[in-house]
């Protein structure tokens, strides 16, 4: 029983990682007032870039850089549309998702001819699991042993990076000048403008930060969790991350808990498949899959707290003509 729990939690951590990275990515963007439903596309683009380059170079780190670069590129398109051209941010996000889905499959087929996949990564092409010091020694200690050896140890570097990114994001947001301005521009861009700060440059930086984190999230999928890119491998994770962001009310620590919750639901769904719950029977796996969205809708409905987005989110900034 305890072992099952540890194993479920262990896969929760693995499944939460890409959600968390993408969720924090969305947090930077939306806190600055740029709504981003293109998290999915940026992750997918990054996953492909990372998978392809890691295969060609045989180096996961170079792959990661490539993944981040692709994601930033897509983020800049979103920025160009929504900041410079004051276009509709939702439409732009939809376009990014289409572009990424099409281009990754198309280029994947052209370059590798494996039905849109990138070839399987070997050795250093992939991020390996890191065994924390002393993990093997304490493995047999009751309770603490499995927690340390299974749950905390034995993940790849990106998992640790994701969880470190949570306090870092909090610190950036609430303890730095950049964070103060970022939060301000998402609430009242006119206040930022009249304070002599460029709204445009500030929002571009937020969008780039979003690109970097989405790059990490996508790369995790193709060169850490799996050994290569598979067509459409994000499978809606970008949208679950978006749901988690709303669920977390745009706060970093809550984002982590929301992603862990949604990751846990995913892990449970896998574990529960084909199993009878006493008194209820088999719970369909689709129920677990839909649960993050259902929970978010319930939250949005205001039945469990109230999710109020940054006030200026989604509204292009235009100097008022008085």
């Amino acid at each position: 029983m305890f072992e099952t729990l540890i194993l479920t939690l262990d896969s929760t951590v693995r499944l939460s990682t890409p959600l968390l990275l993408a969720c924090l990515a969305g947090l930077y963007s939306e806190r600055s007032g740029i709504v981003d439903i293109g998290l999915e596309g940026k992750m997918l683009g990054a996953a492909f870039g990372a998978g392809a380059v890691a295969y060609i170079t045989g180096n996961a780190w170079i792959g990661l850089m490539a993944g981040i670069a692709v994601s930033i590129g897509l983020a800049l398109i979103h920025g160009f549309a929504s900041i410079t051209n004051r276009g509709n941010q939702i439409v732009s996000g939809v376009a990014i998702n289409f572009l990424a889905a099409g281009l990754t499959a198309l280029l994947g087929q052209t370059w590798f001819s494996q039905g849109g996949r990138t070839p399987s990564l070997q050795g250093d092409g992939r991020f390996r699991d890191i065994v924390l010091p002393g993990a093997e020694q304490v493995r047999d200690v009751p309770i603490i042993g499995p927690i340390y050896a299974e749950l905390l140890s034995g993940h790849n570097i990106l998992v640790y990076a994701a969880f470190v990114a949570v306090p870092v994001t909090w610190w950036v947001l609430f303890r730095t000048r950049f964070g103060l301005r970022l939060r301000a521009v998402g609430e009242n861009p006119a206040a930022v403008d009249t304070a002599g700060i460029s709204v445009t440059w500030l929002r571009y930086r937020a969008v780039i930060a979003c690109g970097i984190l989405c790059g990490l999230a996508g790369s995790y999928l193709s060169i850490a969790q799996s050994a290569g890119f598979i067509k459409d491998m994000t499978a809606g994770k970008g949208f679950i991350a978006l749901a988690a962001l709303i669920f977390a009310k745009w706060r970093p620590a809550s984002a982590m808990f929301a992603c862990l919750l949604f990751g846990f639901l995913d892990a449970t769904a896998i574990r529960m498949q084909g199993q009878e719950v006493p008194g209820i029977g088999e719970i369909p796996v689709q129920f677990f899959q839909a649960l993050p969205y259902i929970l978010t809708v319930i939250l949005l409905a205001g039945f469990i707290g109230k999710a109020i987005p940054p006030k200026a989110a989604g509204i292009p900034y235009l100097k008022e003509r008085s």
């Binding site: 160009f80 549309a81 051209n85 276009g87 509709n88 941010q89 439409v91 732009s92 939809v94 376009a95």
Partner: peptide, 8 residues
């Protein structure tokens, strides 16, 4: 979608 929508 990008050019006709977001970049209209």
């Amino acid at each position: 979608i990008l050019f006709a929508g977001a970049l209209e």
